[in-house]
Write a protein that binds this DNA or RNA. Structure first.
Length: 569
RNA sequence: CGGGGCGUAGCGCAGCCUGGUUAGCGCGCAUGCCUUGGGCGCAUGAAGUCGGGAGUUCAAAUCUCCCCGCCCCGACCA
C-alpha cells in the first residue's frame, strides 16, 4: 500500500478526551474515529488489525470443529421474554419498536437467538455435540462507555455456543474452548492469564475470564505463584485462618461513649486502636429481608461473595431508615450484639477476641467484644475481598495482584437457556432431555486495544507480529531523489511479490514527519532507504520493539524480513 | 442516575469573570519558494451558525434560563 493513497490520518497532538494509552494512540495513529459516545468507526489500519485477529480466531474455532454462522443483530422481544431477560437486562439493552409497534432490541448477546435456532433444528442425540460461533457487532447501552474501543457501546465480539447431550460433554466442550482461547491469545503475542470468574447475570456453573495484563486494566487479577491459582478480584477466595488466634484473655464487655464517631477511621482514632481490632457491621437489604454482615475494620466486604452465599438476586446496602429500624441507632453505630436479624461474618472473625463494635445506640460502641461469648453468628464464610499477601485458598502461599483487561470470557451455562427456551433432544432411549450449553465470548476490538495497551512506548504503538496491519514500513528519505525513488519502488514491488505486506511511505514529506508517523503506527520493521547507504547497496532495518538498527544488503531484504516473521511470536 | 467539568476553524487552546473594533494563537490544510536522516524555514491564502433555542440589553462568544452533546469521578456491568 502506498501511504500517499492510504487513509491514515495521523494526529500530532493527543485529543483531549482520550485518557488511556490505547485510546490516545489509536486515535493518533488514525485507526479509529468517534461518531458518538462509545460508537466508533474503524479506519483502514484498524480494519487490517481486526482482520488479522479474526483470522486467528476463525482458525482456532474451526480447529475445535466450531462452525461459523451469522445471527441477526435485531432481535424480537418474544425470545427475551421467554428467557426472562427482557425484564432483568435493564437499560443496557437498547429497545425499540418497529412500524407495527412490535418490541425489538439490538442484540447485546445471542443466547436467546441461538437457543431458539437450535431448539427448532436439533432433535436427536445424533446431532450433538455442536459448536457454533459468529463474529459480529453487538450493542450494549453501557452506563458509561470509556477508554475508546476498550469499553464501547457498539463493539465487535466473537461469540460461540456449545450444545452437548450431557454435563460431561459440556465440560469437554468447555475445555476445548479454554484451550482454543489460550492458543488465540498466545498467537497474538499477549501476556495474559485465565482466571476463575463469577458467572454474573449470564448464569451457569463455572467460568473463566481471559485477562490481558496491563496496568491500565479495569479489573484486578489475583494469582498465586505457589499453585497457579488465578481468579478475578470478585471471586478470589481467601483461606480461612487456622490456629492463628492468640490465647488472649477475654476481658469484660465495656460500653463506651463515642460521640459522633461513625467511620472506622473516626472510631479507631478516638479509641486509640487499630482497624484490625474493630468489627465493621454492615446492614444490607435483600430479597430475603435485612441482614447484618461483619468484617474486620481493615477489610472490605465482597458483595458478590455475599450474594452467592445467600443465593439472592437483590442485595443493596440498606438506607438510613432501615439501619435505624434494625439497629435502633443511626448509621455508624451498628453492632452484632442483640440483633434479631441474620448475622453473617467473615471467617477471620471466628473466635475474635476483645474487639470494638457498634453499640446499636447513638454515640455508643462496645469494647472487649468476644465471639462467640457476646453475640451469635448465623454463619461464617469467606466474605471479604482478597488483598495482596492474603493466603491462597488452595495452597496458603501469599496471593499477588495485577491489573488486567478482560478480553475473553467462557461460561459453562448448563441448562439455563435450554430450559427456558425449551431446547431439547431425544436421547438414545427416546427420552426427551435438555441440551447442555456453554457460551464463550471474545471482545475482538477490546483485544486489539489491549494489545496496544500492553505494547506501546512513548513514541507510539508497537504491534505484535501477529496483529500488525503491515509487516514492513518502507521509508525512503527523499522521494524526490529520482534514483532513490526508483529504487524504492522497485523494492516495494519485490517485497509485495514475495507476499510481504508493505506500507510504503511514498509521501513527499520531510523525513522527521515520516519517522514520527512510523513510530506512532508501530509496524514491527522499518526499512529506511537513504541515498548514502543506498549508494553502497545497503538499506537500514530498524526494529520497532527493540529500537535496534542494522544495515543490510538491499538485495537480501526479502530474506531478512521473512526470517524475522518466521520466528515464533 | 448522583457529583464535577467542558463545548470558540480539522486538532490543541486563549478570549467569557468585568458585554462594545474585523473573534484570536499554535498545529494542520491549500499555493509558491526553500529544505530533505527525527514533526525545517519564509511568504500568501482558505476555513468559524463561538453546541442549539429563548431571554436581558442600544449591543451577547461574554449575562440569565431551557435543551443537546461530550469528558471525568461514583453507582452499575460479559
Amino acid at each position: 500500500m502506498l501511504f500517499s493513497k492510504a487513509l491514515i490520518p495521523t494526529l500530532k497532538e493527543t485529543p483531549a478526551d482520550a485518557e488511556v494509552a490505547s485510546h490516545q494512540l489509536m486515535l493518533r495513529a488514525g485507526m479509529i474515529r468517534k461518531l458518538a459516545a462509545g460508537i466508533y468507526s474503524y479506519l483502514p489500519l484498524a480494519q487490517r488489525v481486526l482482520q488479522k485477529l479474526k483470522i486467528i480466531i476463525r482458525e482456532e474455532m474451526n480447529s475445535i470443529d466450531g462452525q461459523e454462522i451469522t445471527l441477526p443483530a435485531v432481535q424480537p422481544s418474544e425470545i427475551w421474554e421467554k428467557s426472562g431477560r427482557w425484564n432483568i437486562y435493564g437499560k443496557e439493552l437498547l429497545r425499540f419498536k418497529d412500524r407495527n409497534n412490535r418490541n425489538f432490541c439490538l442484540g447485546p448477546t445471542h443466547e436467546e437467538v441461538i437457543t431458539d435456532l437450535i431448539r427448532r433444528e436439533v432433535k436427536s442425540y445424533r446431532e450433538l455435540p455442536l459448536t457454533l460461533y459468529q463474529i459480529q457487532t453487538k450493542f450494549r447501552d453501557e452506563i458509561r462507555p470509556r477508554f475508546g474501543i476498550m469499553r464501547a457501546r457498539e463493539f465487535v465480539m466473537k461469540d460461540a455456543y456449545s450444545f452437548d447431550r450431557d454435563e460431561a460433554g459440556a465440560e469437554e466442550s468447555y475445555h476445548k474452548m479454554y484451550q482454543a482461547y489460550t492458543n488465540i491469545f498466545e498467537r497474538c503475542g499477549l501476556e495474559f492469564r485465565a482466571v476463575e470468574a463469577d458467572t454474573g447475570s449470564i448464569g451457569g456453573s463455572f467460568s473463566h475470564e481471559f485477562m490481558v495484563l496491563a496496568d491500565s486494566g479495569e479489573d484486578v487479577v489475583v494469582y498465586c505463584e505457589g499453585c497457579g491459582y488465578a481468579a478475578n478480584l470478585e471471586k478470589a477466595e481467601v483461606k480461612p485462618p487456622v490456629g492463628l488466634l492468640e490465647n488472649e484473655s477475654l476481658k469484660n464487655l465495656e460500653k463506651v461513649h463515642t460521640p459522633e464517631q461513625k467511620t472506622v477511621d473516626e472510631v479507631t482514632n478516638f479509641l486509640g486502636i487499630t482497624p484490625d481490632n474493630l468489627i465493621k457491621t454492615l446492614i444490607f437489604d435483600t430479597d430475603k429481608g435485612p441482614i447484618a454482615v461483619l468484617v474486620r475494620g481493615d477489610h472490605e466486604i465482597n458483595e458478590i461473595k455475599l450474594k452467592n452465599l445467600l443465593g439472592c438476586e437483590y442485595l443493596l446496602l440498606a438506607d438510613d431508615d432501615t439501619v435505624e429500624k434494625v439497629t435502633g441507632a443511626p448509621r455508624g453505630f451498628a453492632g452484632p450484639l442483640d440483633l434479631n436479624i441474620p448475622v453473617y461474618a467473615d471467617n477471620i472473625l471466628k473466635g475474635a477476641t476483645n474487639m470494638v463494635t457498634g453499640g446499636n445506640g447513638k454515640d455508643v460502641h462496645y469494647k472487649n467484644v468476644n465471639e462467640p461469648r457476646d453475640f451469635k453468628t448465623t454463619r461464617f464464610a469467606d466474605l471479604r475481598t482478597a488483598e495482596e499477601g492474603d493466603p491462597c485458598a488452595r495452597c496458603g502461599k501469599p496471593l499477588h495482584m495485577r491489573r488486567g483487561i478482560e478480553v475473553g470470557h467462557i461460561f459453562k451455562l448448563g441448562t439455563k437457556y435450554s430450559k427456558s427456551l425449551h431446547a431439547t433432544y431425544l436421547d438414545q432411549a427416546g427420552k426427551e432431555s435438555l441440551i447442555v450449553m456453554g457460551c464463550y465470548g471474545i471482545g475482538v476490538g477490546r483485544t486489539v486495544a489491549a494489545a496496544v495497551e500492553q505494547h506501546h512506548d512513548k513514541d507510539g504503538i508497537i504491534f505484535p507480529k501477529a496483529l500488525t496491519p503491515y509487516q514492513v514500513l518502507m521509508l525512503p528519505i527523499n522521494i524526490n531523489d529520482e534514483i532513490l525513488r526508483k529504487a524504492a519502488f522497485q523494492m516495494y514491488d519485490k517485497l509485495s511479490q514475495a507476499g510481504i505486506e508493505v506500507l510504503f511511505d511514498d509521501r513527499d514529506e520531510r523525513p522527521g514527519i515520516k519517522f514520527k508517523d512510523a513510530d506512532l503506527i508501530g509496524i514491527p520493521i522499518r526499512i529506511t532507504i537513504g541515498s548514502r547507504n543506498f549508494e553502497r547497496g545497503k538499506v537500514e532495518v530498524k526494529y520497532r520493539e527493540s529500537g535496534k538498527m542494522e544495515l543490510i544488503d538491499s538485495e537480501k531484504t526479502v530474506k531478512y524480513i521473512k526470517g524475522f516473521f518466521n520466528k515464533k511470536i
